[in-house]
Design a binder for these strands. Structure first.
Lengths: 204, 204
DNA sequence: GGAAAGTTCTGCAGTTCGTGCAAAGTTGCG
DNA sequence: CGCAACTTTGCACGAACTGCAGAACTTTCC
């Protein structure tokens, strides 16, 4: 079995490194923190840091290693004949639910990314890594060619954009509106052809 | 005036560096080429390289320094009362026309990015930098709050996604269909609410 | 319990990146 | 020419990241 002490220690070390990286980055700025400092704060050697994260920025951004495969798995779980945008909406809602669990860390990361665009870039780049796999699944379902038709990659890009935008608004507005509601609103706008906003609450 | 010899030399050095970076990256792989080699191929000192590009990857990807401001300028040139998605479509068409000018280099970069995801990440990250500015312009036009409403950032994300996807399909299919047509198809799909593909040529 | 096998951690050495600084070289202009 | 503004360059430096090989630890199996 694989649930031994070894697995637990690895997971804990990873969390310790990510958490130390985030804390130090907030205190000193992303450029003020070194890998050596992160490793020391987590109680491991600097060399070990690179057994867990490929780069310093990755540790700060900390896209969970399983988040990407979960996105794909959630999409594949949807019924085959469901319209692509609806299947993707469900997938994004599932991801949003996971985000809401670590709401506090998410907020810190969001603020950091606001001030230091390089982190925002790294973050969105992480999500772009799954785009290809998701687009291939949509292509398979629709019988289209992912390399020759615009639809599969486009609908995936729009869906991940909706996730990104909804999360940003959620963080920016201090969670006055629940994240699932924002995700739904974004997907409603996509489904409506993005023709101007469906006014959520027009001011007097 | 600023159109002296100095300006011309700077532009030429920049092109020499970018072109050397791309050629060497194709021959040796992105990791096999060093800044020192790029600088030598361009006939300048390694130190000078960093006066033109912030990183080695930036030189290979080479998003023209003016491309980002051109996107924003093209959007601002559109009439105020035009529907946002239509204004963005025109902006993307203008960008696509610029892309078509350097079609050959574009193709090499596309192939490199296919094989080395880190370059693709850097590339899309470059485009993400303008998202904020574009979203603010859309927010201004629609009277929405860019931080509190999903619509402005969402429609911009979808439009840039359409540009990215259309360009990818264009490169992938060997330019059998003109880029403007692919861009139009992508925007038609967005305007139609992404509800399955508007079949371009259904198989028998 | 204890040895063998498999893994993770760690130190070390080395390459490359990227930056600050100040001197040297170029260009623009009167 | 001669001064001002700008660009290039060399130097030094810290930090990122990688390969390697041995130490330390877990797991497994007897």
């Amino acid at each position: 079995m694989a649930s031994g002490l070894r697995e637990r220690k690895k997971a804990e070390t990873r969390r310790a490194l990510a958490s130390a990286a985030l804390r130090l980055a907030r205190e000193l700025g992303p450029d003020g923190v070194t890998v050596e400092a992160i490793a020391e704060a987590a109680g491991v050697s600097p060399r070990t840091f690179f057994n867990y994260f490929a780069s310093k920025d990755d540790a700060i951004v900390n896209i969970s290693p399983t988040e990407q495969s979960m996105l794909l798995a959630d999409l594949c779980d949807r019924p085959e004949d469901e319209p692509p945008l609806d299947a993707l909406r469900a997938m994004v809602q599932a991801a949003a639910a996971r985000f809401a669990e670590d709401a506090d860390e998410m907020l810190v990361r969001h603020r950091l990314a606001q001030e230091h665009p390089s982190l925002a870039m790294r973050r969105s780049a992480r999500f772009a890594e799954v785009e290809r796999a998701l687009a291939e699944e949509i292509a398979r379902r629709t019988g289209l060619d992912v390399d020759a038709d615009t639809y599969p990659a486009l609908v995936v890009a729009a869906a991940l954009g909706a996730l990104r935008v909804a999360t940003a608004v959620w963080n920016e507005t201090g969670r006055t509106r629940p994240l699932p509601e924002l995700v739904d609103q974004a997907f409603d706008q996509l489904a409506a052809g993005l023709n101007r906003a469906a006014a959520p609450a027009s001011p007097a």
